[in-house]
Simulated assay, not measured.
Amino acid sequence: MVEDLLLKNAMLIDPSMGIKGQRDIVITNGHIKTVATEISTGTAQRVIDVEGKIVTSGLIDLHTHVADGLIPIGCSPDECGVYSGVTTVCDGGSLGWANFRGLPRYITPAVKTEVLSFLNLASTGLAVMPEIWDRRNLDLASTLDTIQEFPETIKGLKVRAIGAFVRNLGLEGFSLVKGLSRKAGLPLMVHLGTEPEEEVGETELAEFTKGMLGMLEAGDILTHVFTWKRGGVIDQDGVMLHEAEEARRRGVIFDVANAKTNFSFSIARKAIGRGFRPSCISTDLTGVNLQSVHSLPVSMSKFMAAGLTLEEVVAMTTCNPAQVIKESHRKGCLRAGYPADLTILELKQGEFNFSDGIQGRSFTGDYLLVPRLTIKKGVLIKANPQFP
């Protein structure tokens, strides 16, 4: 492990402390020791000049599927984690109570990326999809037991408001899962958007969406907020449902979750143009969308093309998700004493072609954030950018 590392001439962006400017950073024993404008190289065992590079606290991806080998769509935590400039990934409900133990037993001990989790309300998570089509797919008591067994790892609960759930469990079923999240003291992450082939009526879906929004509380999370699919909360003109506006005012979190087909650049650009800002940018990376979503820095670049500033996309991938998962005491900030989780990025300017979430569509952006180096608890890891 690097005992004493000095990063010189960093363009540091830390929205949690309102910092944007050149700084030097000293890392000792896996922790941040000093952040200052000019630090002598005399005592450093190793010096890295990062002039021209952006340095942030370690990026956090709030929504991934990294149960690699435990579910069909799982991907490697390190591929979408440290090799992409991301120091912490949150698995977004890949596993339920019946198979969750495979994550800490087989996956997290073997990777460099820190893996946290949202526990799926369906007993077996996404091992078989659709995962919830009947009340018997839920075991609330066993789910609660699992939460209590892994309090450091499980940061919330996850439910997909897909057609099968809406049609067969409806608002009564949603009230059950919301009640469990309240009892556990954890936020509930709700997947928005039904597939075109799912058999659920427009009126039934609209009533469910509005009723579900009314049950959400501060800290709960709506994910795929820019979906173009039925069951979303923002329309094609970028206008948000009244009930979603009310939920937002109550403190409900709005998460991007780029994914392969749950994102519309047009909707995002129009909503942002109207003044809406999502709370967090995440990828929803899986083993089947890695070649289109690529990485969290690519998703950040997409939202710069949609109208967000560099400082905003950094906040949405550092301090904001750290607050959502209640880890602000050790993540999302480059304060002295914090674990040395850092991301070093290069901002490239040009014409970059990004994939949209609507099949066959793409759009261009002027900027691309490229991860160059990841530091996890003081250990240097060379990034492997996924964007072709």
Rank of each mutant, 00 (worst) to 15 (best):
V2Q: 15
D4L: 08
L5D: 14
L5M: 11
N9E: 11
A10T: 13
M11N: 12
D14T: 06
D14C: 10
G21P: 08
E38W: 12
E38R: 13
I39V: 13
T41E: 14
T43R: 15
E51I: 07
G52K: 04
H63S: 09
H65S: 07
A67D: 15
D68H: 09
L70C: 11
P72L: 00
D78I: 02
C80L: 08
S84D: 13
G85T: 06
G85Y: 08
G85W: 11
C90I: 11
G96H: 12
W97F: 10
T108D: 06
T113C: 12
S123T: 01
G125C: 10
V128C: 11
E131N: 00
R136T: 13
N137R: 06
D139M: 01
A141C: 02
T153R: 07
G156F: 13
A184C: 02
G185S: 14
L186F: 09
P187Q: 13
T194R: 12
T194K: 12
E202W: 06
T209E: 05
L216S: 02
D220E: 13
T223N: 07
I234C: 10
D235A: 02
H242W: 02
R248T: 08
V252M: 00
D255G: 10
S264E: 03
S264I: 00
A268R: 00
R274A: 09
G275I: 01
F276Q: 14
P278H: 00
I281R: 03
L285V: 13
G287A: 05
L290N: 04
Q291L: 07
P297M: 10
E311V: 01
E311T: 01
V313S: 01
E327S: 10
S328Q: 13
H329I: 05
H329P: 11
C333H: 14
R335Y: 11
A336K: 10
A340H: 06
T343W: 04
E351L: 15
F352G: 03
D356S: 05
G357F: 03
R361C: 05
P371A: 02
I375S: 13
G378L: 06
L380F: 04
N384V: 07
